[in-house]
Design a protein around this nucleic acid. Structure first.
Length: 219
DNA sequence: ATATAGCGCTAGTAAGTCTG
DNA sequence: CAGACTTACTAGCGCTATAT
């Protein structure tokens, strides 16, 4: 751990937190809803995910048994608003069938695995890449792993820490090497980056004057 | 004549992952 | 690596209808 970097990262965190307050991430009623959200939000804004989750709830399909037994075309229709709906319907099926067959439908049982075993297992499933796996580990299993994404790359790129095309692993290592491994900190830190990335640090015409990081930003 | 609200259209943008 | 997946929302624009 580099003490200077740790202090810089905690300063950045403090500036964001001070302006935004706690973000209470991830917004879901339970672990399973969180996981469904994580899969559906791939390359889609959160607003559309909310609609899809409401659809699933309305049809009483927002559960492992529900998804397992649901007709795939019905499922596709309910989550259509989250783009790539055919792939995503299949992804939900694959995940739920896996938990059903290997853990008798118990997420808690699955979460008893240690962090890196759980990560390997999630990554082996169709539809779960690094970001989704890490989101599930942090926000549902509540184990300390740092989630990075396109917002992280953009925000920290503009702060001068990352290249435009920095790899997922490099970004993740950067945070995990220089922060205390604490589930609550990782949770809130990612949520704060997400907030700044979607509210101020926009791709086109960012709103720098309002941004909590403007005083330490390079652009 | 000018202002403006409402509508339809287009282009750009949006929390990734898999396959070959 | 690039290509595939392949929807929804919205800002921005021109157009028209109605109000000043």
């Amino acid at each position: 751990m580099d003490i200077g970097l740790n202090r810089a990262l905690m300063d950045i965190y403090g500036s964001m937190y001070e302006k935004e307050g706690s973000r209470h991430w991830w917004p879901a009623e339970n672990d399973f809803e969180m996981i469904v959200g994580a899969i559906l939000t791939q390359f889609v804004s959160w607003k559309n995910v909310t609609t899809a989750i409401e659809n699933l709830k309305r049809e009483n399909l927002l559960s492992i048994e529900g998804i397992c037994s649901a007709n795939i075309e019905i499922l596709e229709e309910l989550i259509r608003c989250t783009r790539f709906y055919k792939q995503k319907a299949k992804k939900l099926k694959v995940f739920c069938l896996h938990v059903e067959s290997r853990y008798r439908g118990s997420l808690d049982k699955m979460f008893e695995n240690d962090l890196y075993d759980l990560r390997r297992e999630l990554l082996s499933l169709y539809g779960i890449g690094k970001e989704t796996a890490d989101c599930i580990i942090l926000y549902a299993a509540r184990k300390p792993i740092f989630v990075v994404d396109a917002y992280t790359r953009r925000v920290f790129g503009r702060l001068g820490y990352f290249k435009e095309d920095e790899s997922y692993d490099n970004m993740q290592r950067f945070f995990m090497d220089n922060l205390e491994h604490d589930t609550e900190l990782f949770n809130e830190y990612h949520a704060q980056i997400d907030g700044v990335g979607s509210k101020y640090c926009l791709g086109k015409s960012p709103l720098c004057p309002e941004c909590p990081l403007s005083k330490i930003c390079k652009i």
